[in-house]
Design a protein around this nucleic acid. Structure first.
Lengths: 208, 208
DNA sequence: ACCTGAACACCGTTCAAGT
DNA sequence: ACCTGAACACCGTTCAAGT
């Protein structure tokens, strides 16, 4: 009974990152401040510096932590299937955790989890007959599109009503007429279809 | 002579936005603070609020201002040529003005210039036989890729040495071997080639 | 009509001090 | 070894005051 009480409330990196992720998911990356994370953990802001080097380092850890949710690709699998699966999952992650999408563009991502995931994608491509340069180009193209698509959806969500209401019918008649389609272009189905096309487009690079 | 003297140093919105753009291009978007823009203009930070509604509004104006550099698309032109030209120019703009790229993802872009440009792209697509939904999808896909590619290059530039040095050879052998190619995937030539492919991929949507 | 200065409620981070 | 409180140099913005 004596050793169970008080629970030895020791802080560690994992708790700090989890708290930051919680706040980020709920209130956006801007809400992730050292003061607020400290408050969430019932601790002084300065206590966090015993476990993370800086605010920037905390954001990097937050990204790397959440990337763990992604399934690794099977390097021996069919490349089209693996790529579609991976980037669809990445897009799902980024739209489910907008703070991660925000963080990925504020900071270069070079954490261990990100690196391991990229390695798997590149591996399946080179094993499938892609030259090194084509594998790298294909990966980066898909990655760039996926981040862009997540950000586009995020910005739609942040927009006044998410429906592109600000478009002037006189000044921009076509954009005005297509405003509904422009909003829906961020939907899951459309993104998945675009990813499928991008993946298929890489087929021209496979050497026989 | 009497009315020429003292030059009636009146501040206006244009001067404020120009100063913000100057600071952003040189020192990044984070350096664009009301205090610093005020200092650049030799004026109190609070003077700016007579010409822009808020810091966020100033960033929106900064984006819209710099988008003016882009050439409008010719709605009667050949859609492949027009699209390639427009998105290549957009990518050039975003890499030349990193602050604009940063701003485009922090804020939804709905300014008048952005809207007019989008209208031109959508117009050339619908005139060329694209259904409304396909035109919107195609535009958004290209836009997302272009923003993503600009951010990727920006993050490479921000990286420790821009060469992906942090990749562990044991943990991620393929990524390590391809690190040179991964860095170069952000180069102009590679982005233009990817844009060309994306544009060509849309051809399947044209109804005859 | 436009500008200023002081003030408020925030930031990240340093540093000396506590246990 | 870990945590705290005060302090510093910043933010955006409000508000009363000046011209």
């Amino acid at each position: 009974m004596a050793r169970a009480r008080a629970a030895r409330r020791t802080l560690d990196e994992r708790q700090v990152v989890d708290a930051a992720l919680r706040i980020g998911d709920e209130h956006g990356l801007d809400a992730v401040t050292m003061r607020r994370v400290g408050a969430e953990l019932g601790v002084s802001p300065m206590a966090l510096y015993n476990h993370v080097a800086s605010k920037d380092a905390l954001v990097d850890l937050l990204v790397d932590r959440s990337l763990r949710e992604l399934p690794a690709v099977d390097p021996t699998g069919a490349w089209r299937v693996e790529l579609r699966g991976f980037f669809t999952a990445l897009h799902g992650l980024l739209t489910a955790h907008p703070a991660v999408a925000e963080a990925m563009l504020r900071r270069p991502i070079e954490g261990p989890v990100a690196t391991r995931l990229a390695d798997g994608v590149l591996d399946v491509l080179t094993r499938s007959g892609f030259a090194d340069a084509d594998a790298a180009d294909g990966f980066v193209t898909l990655f760039n599109y996926t981040c862009g698509a997540s950000l586009y959806r995020l910005s739609r969500r942040r927009s006044t009503d998410g429906r592109l209401a600000g478009i002037d019918r006189e000044q921009a008649p076509t954009a005005h007429r297509l405003r509904g389609h422009l909003s829906h272009a961020a939907d899951d189905g459309h993104v998945e279809r675009a990813l499928e096309r991008l993946v298929d487009g890489l087929a021209a690079d496979v050497r026989d």
